[in-house]
Design a protein around this nucleic acid. Sequence first.
DNA 1: GACACATATCCGCCTACACGGATATATTGA
DNA 2: TCAATATATCCGTGTAGGCGGATATGTGTC
Lengths: 115, 115
Amino acid sequence: MKEMAKLFKALSEDVRLRILGLLCQGELCVCDLMAVLDLPQSTISRHLSYLTNAGWLAGERRGVWMYYRLIDDGGDLQQDLMAVLIKHLAKLPAVARDYARLTQYLKTKNPSACG
Amino acid sequence: MKEMAKLFKALSEDVRLRILGLLCQGELCVCDLMAVLDLPQSTISRHLSYLTNAGWLAGERRGVWMYYRLIDDGGDLQQDLMAVLIKHLAKLPAVARDYARLTQYLKTKNPSACG
DNA sequence: GACACATATCCGCCTACACGGATATATTGA
DNA sequence: TCAATATATCCGTGTAGGCGGATATGTGTC
């Protein structure tokens, strides 16, 4: 019960939904998210911790960079919710704008950086 | 976006999940919920307001009593989420206990009361 | 109108957490 | 070891919202 509420609570915030939306496209590191969402590093990092702690993300360190990706082996409930998220997030205008900015960003990004 | 976060936020609290679980069985009035959940009236009423405002419930006055039921004509996202809730809430031990108490309560309840 | 009852709202108190700048930590490379 | 960079955490500030007793409001009955 607490666990279920915790899953939902993690989804109850705009920035976190935008992060999940972006990660539907594949893993990203903190600096990618900072660039695309245009938010301070501490804000991004805090939300990533929250999502990880709630069981939505997994982080992996590669050198100096931390890559985050969606967890695909959660419980039944979580998998059903993930399907709902994938289906509906992309429809949101704010998320569509983020996708566009991500595409643009990946094009111009220095290849020697994290990606 | 805000709307989506709002839907999820309403689901991020134990008491509200228990209320939704009970209402899956059909409409109930505030006094029913007080009896089954064993919580103060102000607490129940506050959560019902929250759920109604978030678009999860509809309330209807019948005489002195307010009956609440799940909304079945929400948007696409909401309907998908409702299906997930119906599927998973009943599995939770806390909700199963509430069902048992509801059954017991309905048996012993004075028929001249709200029901 | 006066009362009884169901429900909604108010109130003070308290915790969670959002924000973002400042600081601490971790890693790599010179 | 030191500097540079990426990330995590700390901090003070502000707001949302949980709690439940007290009070206000709405409704039916006499």
